[in-house]
């Protein structure tokens, strides 16, 4: 009886909470691909997927079924264990971060004190899926793609870290719930618009999205680090990339757009539930992700590195110092 009370029941509750985060997330990822194709189609005056189901709504499921029914090919020169491990790492890491994301007041799986650092730590682990898959494939295209991607992700992680520090100084806590609550009066995007822009651009680079999708530059590297993957392995990388996009949008809206808070604390806005506001904000940021993809051409590699190290790093460092000084001067 004691065993059931202390372990089985809490375990089952946590499992149910996990499922209630992961299942909607997977469905959201499926529909994000659909949304992406529709949005880019509309921008390029095309229709986008429109044949499977009403308005093409069943297209993601058709794609998933097609991917799963493909043959899994492991290249003969590949390092088998690591080759299989890499997509799993990517997939798992893309889900793990959601543990600390607060969807509403108190609606969070793990309300830990160091939520921000946890997110930073997990996103710095994301590099491994990329670099390991590139090495284990034993193919030059995959390896080159992995090297590019790793250098890019590490470079932009630094500016993301500094931006996070400015938010942390303003909010005075690393707990994500407290950061959202600190924005009750004014969202952080208003006093810190430059930081928001730097964070968003770095998020594009961190998730390897256009215009920073050099790791998968089709014209020179075929597809980058996951060239050799087929079937489920490929699907895992794909899901991981899109889950990271949604995650980055969620972090952007928590750090700068006030998380679940309505834009103004007055009646017509308060009627809409907080969760809906949060989802709407994620949706808005995701739309900008896709909009950017359809608008800008790909960066050249030296330009990308210059932007990260010579532009974003000094600006965000300066901003950290300014924020800290202002806080000490006026809000002590």
């Amino acid at each position: 009886m004691g065993f059931i009370d202390t372990y089985i029941i809490p375990g089952a509750i946590v499992l149910a909470q996990l499922l209630s985060i992961v299942l909607p997330l997977l469905i959201a990822i499926a529909y994000l691909t659909f949304f992406e194709r529709k949005v880019i189609g509309a921008i390029q005056l095309r229709k986008g997927p429109s044949l499977v189901g009403p308005f093409g709504l069943l297209q993601p499921f058709a794609d998933v079924l097609k991917l799963m029914s493909k043959e899994t090919i492991i290249p003969s020169g590949a390092n088998k264990i690591i080759f299989i491990l890499a997509p799993m790492i990517t997939f798992i890491l893309s889900l793990v971060s959601w543990a600390v994301i607060p969807f509403d007041e108190g609606m969070v799986l793990a309300n830990i004190n160091l939520g921000l650092l946890y997110l930073l730590a997990i996103s710095s682990l994301n590099v491994y899926g990329v670099i390991i898959s590139g090495w284990a494939s034993n193919s030059k295209y995959a390896f080159l793609g992995a090297l590019r991607s790793t250098a890019q992700m590490i470079s932009y992680e630094i500016s993301i870290g500094l931006v996070i520090i400015t938010v942390l100084i303003c909010a005075g806590s690393m707990n994500l719930t407290k950061i959202v609550e600190a924005q009750k009066n004014v969202w952080f995007i208003i006093p810190m618009l430059p930081m928001f822009l730097i964070f968003f651009i770095s998020a594009l680079a961190e998730t390897n999205r256009a215009p920073f999708d050099l790791p998968e530059g089709e014209s020179e590297l075929v597809a980058g680090y996951f060239v050799e993957y087929s079937s489920i392995g490929f699907a895992f990388f794909f899901i991981g990339e899109y889950a990271n996009m949604i995650l980055m949008s969620a972090i952007t809206s928590i750090l700068f757009l006030g998380g679940w808070l309505p834009p103004l604390d007055i009646v017509p806005f308060k009627w809409i539930p907080n969760l809906v506001w949060f989802v709407l904000k994620i949706f808005l940021v995701l739309f900008v992700f896709l909009w950017v993809r359809a608008t800008f051409p790909r960066y050249r590699y030296d330009q990308l590195m210059r932007l990260g190290w010579k532009v974003f790093l000094p600006i965000s460092m300066l901003w950290v110092i300014i924020t800290a000084s202002v806080k000490i001067m006026f809000f002590k």
Partner: peptide, 14 residues
């Protein structure tokens, strides 16, 4: 977290 960010996320990658 610092161990994870610095050692695993940066140094070990290099």
């Amino acid at each position: 977290m610092i161990l994870l960010i610095i050692y695993v996320g940066a140094i070990a990658v290099l």
